[in-house]
């Protein structure tokens, strides 16, 4: 890519993979429990033994994809860049989306932390515009603070909203 149209180049820290995986576990666990319940129901209803096993295997496969594969791909595809004029985000596993937010449009910036992200030493940065909000989901605390302060500084230029 030429200099006039730079691509985002900053990656999320490696701990982000863990955070995504743990968050995905919260979604995958009910799925597996549901499959276990379905298997018991099938067995007690007298369905052939393999149907229950198949349901369970499918659920296990989905759970592995959700917990092991998807978070890794999400982490691998995430890129961001903060330039004077714009915030540049690219993310997505299947649908890859690139978004530009002019810094002059930023209304305010938040950093967010949860119990889980604290354990992993991560913060999220949320950028709010008049049209909506955008989130960089996992950054090291010092990076997050630096980015937040820098965006706030860049956003201080007058806007006409």
């Amino acid at each position: 890519m030429d200099d006039r149209h730079p691509e985002p180049d900053q990656r999320l820290p490696a701990q982000a993979r863990t955070l995504f995986a743990l968050q995905a576990t919260a979604g995958a666990a009910p799925l597996v429990l549901l499959a276990l319940g379905a298997r018991m129901a099938l067995d007690s209803a007298g369905a052939p033994g393999w149907t229950g096993v198949a349901v369970l295997a499918l659920a296990a496969l989905a759970a592995v994809a959700m917990v092991a594969v998807e978070p890794r791909l999400r982490w691998r595809n995430w890129r961001y860049a903060l330039r004077e004029e714009e915030i540049d985000l690219r993310r997505g596993v299947l649908v890859v989306t690139r978004t530009l937010i002019p810094t002059i449009r930023v209304q305010h910036v938040d950093t967010q932390r949860t119990w889980l992200s604290d354990r992993l030493g991560l913060r999220a940065v949320v950028v709010h515009t008049a049209g909506g909000s955008h989130r960089i989901p996992a950054l090291r605390p010092d990076t997050a603070t630096a980015i937040r302060d820098r965006i706030a500084e860049l956003a201080r230029r007058p806007d006409d909203v």
Binding site: R98, P102, H134
Partner: peptide, 8 residues
Amino acid sequence: LQDHSLGQ
């Protein structure tokens, strides 16, 4: 514009 995106 508040933002613009390109998705695939």
